[in-house]
Design a binder for these strands. Sequence first.
DNA 1: AACATTTGCAACCGCGTGCTG
DNA 2: ACAGCACGCGGTTGCAAATGT
Length: 204
Amino acid sequence: MAPCKNSEASANCKMVMNKGAWTVEEDRKLADYIEVHGAKRWKTIAFKAGLKRCGKSCRLRWLNYLRPNIKRGNISDEEEDLILRLHKLLGNRWSLIAGRLPGRTDNEIKNYWNSHLSKKINKKEKASDESPSTQPQKSITEKTCDAVAAVEEMVEEGSKEEAIPERSFDVNQFLDFSMEGTYDLEWLNKFLQLDEDAWLAADN
DNA sequence: AACATTTGCAACCGCGTGCTG
DNA sequence: ACAGCACGCGGTTGCAAATGT
């Protein structure tokens, strides 16, 4: 145990805070309190639930572990593919990426990226560096990444000039996560289909 | 079996942003 | 306009479990 150093808790910093792994008892207290009072004002929640934790810590525990409908582990190929596509498009915007994967948290996706996908990509890059003369068949993921890159270009072009009608790309719509709950890839395919040529080019 | 190294994940930390008085 | 607070994000760390030697 150690005093909480972060700014949020500085006001009551004299209080000794719990740190490290959460216990079952702490989880129960937090979940019970939020079930009754809702997930607002984390500092108050931490205090009133009788937890010697920073509000910040409570929030993280709730969002990443206790929240209902959380999916844990077993990231499917479909989800992995989606993460790769979105990362190509958005970069390390983990919360935005997580927003497209119902039940997944930004922390989980970030961890998954750092421990699995970044290594996969490095391997692929190394492999392609070692055999530059041969042109191996691109995987679905690589193809989609190429297509996403094409979409990115379109976004940039669109910001410079009038959008070409049949190629119009609405960034706001793309980043509008209000249609939560629809776990299909239609929304992305719609954008990817904007440039069939990019697909064909990626194939050659 | 014992030790060293790597891996995977939960949690922490600092910073930026938005809201409120 | 300003200060203080609360929240959210992304990077980083710590540590247990798994794996290698």
